[in-house]
Design a protein around this nucleic acid. Structure first.
Lengths: 134, 134
DNA sequence: CTACGACTTCGAGCGCACTCCAGGTCAAGC
DNA sequence: GCTTGACCTGGAGTGCGCTCGAAGTCGTAG
């Protein structure tokens, strides 16, 4: 498939894909007779995985480290494993922070909902600790 | 309290606090005889709340909108409420995405753990759907 | 044959959220 | 009196992750 289709399917722009190739995040794509990039399904899978890493807040330089290990062959599997485990821990921590902050947000919202022109700002009014996180 | 102490207590740099004041995210602080900023506890609470908004991914321009409404008085309480509710929805959506991606990460990690030099990359090997998100 | 859209490279530009620097002021301790 | 450290202002610089523009090539439809 061409870069346009890959981009559409992965939910990114062709610009982004070229940028990823430039910095080494995508392997250099094979070209057709006219010099255009031609991708197979594995490129889509890899882009999808990169998207997961991005969603979970991994900086590009870390993705690059992972990509480089991957390109270096099977011997780097343990290192890649460790990288993912470390990243997982950071994601879990961030997730906990988010859930925490969501509760604060809900408290604040409850304050606004419960108070008609009474003071609401700058304090944790109307606590409602048993609120469902989602 | 002085800016240094506020910064330490809020977990940000004095630079950041001055920056927030410059862009209108913090109200202009009162000054002492020597022209230095002097804060009371409410500044710390407000900074803490800004931190929550930041943790949950709110861009500064949106915080600014909230801060402006807040500065405009009690009449804007409904608007502020709506702003927070909308933000809450985005946070919840992001949270769901994160949990999803964490599961993918766990699948990948399980693949690395379970396979000695067998192919692991580029596919969702060894699914384990009942894994605990945290 | 021609027009069109999708592609190519390279380099510059952008938005965000800080972060730092220069050059100066001020208050307290020795 | 002098040093030290925290503070002041205004403006420039940084790192990240794209995003865009210019100028040109290619392949298919009409």
């Amino acid at each position: 498939m061409k870069i346009g289709e890959l981009a559409r399917r992965a939910g990114v722009s062709p610009h982004t894909i070229r940028y990823y190739e430039r910095i080494g995040l995508m392997p250099r794509a094979g070209r057709d007779a006219g010099g255009r990039r031609d991708y197979d399904a594995s490129a889509l899978v890899w882009l999808g995985f990169l998207g997961r890493l991005k969603t979970t807040g991994m900086p590009i330089r870390d993705m690059l480290a992972y990509a480089d290990l991957r390109a270096a062959g099977e011997a780097t599997a343990p290192a890649r494993h460790d990288l993912l485990v470390a990243h997982r821990a950071r994601v879990a921590a961030h997730l906990a922070e988010l859930i925490d902050s969501l509760a604060v947000l809900d408290t604040k919202i409850a304050g606004y909902a419960g108070a008609q022109s009474s003071e609401v700002d700058d304090d944790d009014a109307n606590p409602d600790p048993d609120r469902n996180p989602l």
